[in-house]
Design a binder for these strands. Structure first.
Lengths: 207, 207
DNA sequence: TGTACATCAGTGAACGCGCGTTCACTGATGTAC
DNA sequence: TGTACATCAGTGAACGCGCGTTCACTGATGTAC
């Protein structure tokens, strides 16, 4: 009863309560529905039931909002990879398969979010939160492939080849599947999982 | 002298001569300069020195023009792959390296064109010329990996795994390099070639 | 060879669109005394 | 506890933009007789 009154009051408040979160939520919805190219800030405001100028108190510009969304995306990806790694069992080969499969599943399930993560012209790459979540995802794979205690080296160091090869193969497969490079995969008949497993078996990356 | 008069006459002609080709040419320029997202038909018309409506006699709509550009892109890619394959020598392993390297070089050199090829929402996927050039590129790699006489099978057939794994690794690497997934590669210090070679060596795809 | 006329390939002004952002504003909240 | 006032978080109308496309048109070309 009391709660109802409060929540009604909050909904009708001139001051929103947590508009920032509400904007992020509806932005995620709009993004998922319309895709990266169809995304619009006005539509996001509309969904949040708020005027198109309201967002300015929470985000400097569209880029800032997009960057927040991409940060969430990388965080979710990192979560998925870490979870898959933990559930992957003892064998490193199995864990590699589990991570790769989680990567592809994430890309296929969250297509627009996955697109946004790599549409770097739309993002603020100097954003700390973004790059730290991105690093979290990368490190999860790198620790598995190169070993937990491998020294940190530059991305273009030859020692990185196994990690980058693994990342490339799952990333490339996800992109080709999403972008129709591999024929018609609309019907869902595409055996992404099985094929991916077969592909990772071709990769001499562990040991 | 005669030629000069003729060419001057042609330039000033109310009728253009070969507007279709001129539009394609300036579209390629605009695309390279502005990228896929910054591309505009009006700008293309401006560059061709022609009114914004003129294109209608040669292309049904923007999508048709984009599709023509993507077709050219796939044709160029297929050319590059075939050439690399021919120059790759006897060893299949070397030819694989040569094709992979050509693929990545194409992507890095023709960034906007490479982007467009995979931006399928902008293209008319039912276009015959487009799909035949796409197939040319795919077949070039497939013949090398699965062998010249391998039976045609569906893309999601397990027998396709080696071809798709190879394609995925070069495609993924190209995309990650372009999209900054692998750290700052602006300065050109990125050793794409060497790293790619090391990666392909990790792939057990031939024999 | 000349003329009438249909067809073709352009023009350029205009339309309508949705966008991100600006602006002056207003209503609610929090604080000082 | 009550009041004055600064601050904050919204409103909603308006601006300017460039876009793709439409429309009625016009100038050049090709063809029939």
């Amino acid at each position: 009863m009391q709660d109802d009154l409060i929540s009604v009051k909050m909904e009708r408040n001139y001051h929103h309560g947590d508009l920032r979160q509400a904007l992020v939520d509806s932005a995620l919805t709009v993004l998922a529905e319309k895709g990266v190219d169809g995304f619009s800030l006005r539509e996001t405001a509309r969904r949040a039931g708020v005027s198109p100028a309201a967002y300015k108190h929470h985000f400097a510009d569209t880029r800032a909002l997009m960057t927040a969304l991409a940060t969430i995306a990388f965080a979710r990806l990192a979560d998925a990879l870490e979870q898959a790694d933990a559930a992957g069992g003892q064998s490193r080969r199995c864990r590699l398969g589990a991570q790769g499969s989680a990567y592809v599943r994430f890309a296929l399930a969250e297509r627009a979010l996955f697109d946004l993560m790599w549409r770097t012209t739309l993002l603020d790459l100097s954003d700390q939160a973004l790059s730290s979540q991105k690093a979290r995802a990368f490190d999860c794979l790198d620790r598995l492939v190169r070993g937990r205690d491998a020294p940190r080296v530059a991305y273009d160091d030859p020692a990185m080849a196994p990690t980058i090869a693994s990342w490339s193969i799952v990333h490339g497969f996800a992109r080709l599947t999403l972008d129709g490079g591999l024929g018609a995969n609309e019907a869902g008949t595409w055996q992404a999982e099985a094929l991916l497993a077969a592909m990772l078996d071709l990769l001499n990356v562990l040991r």
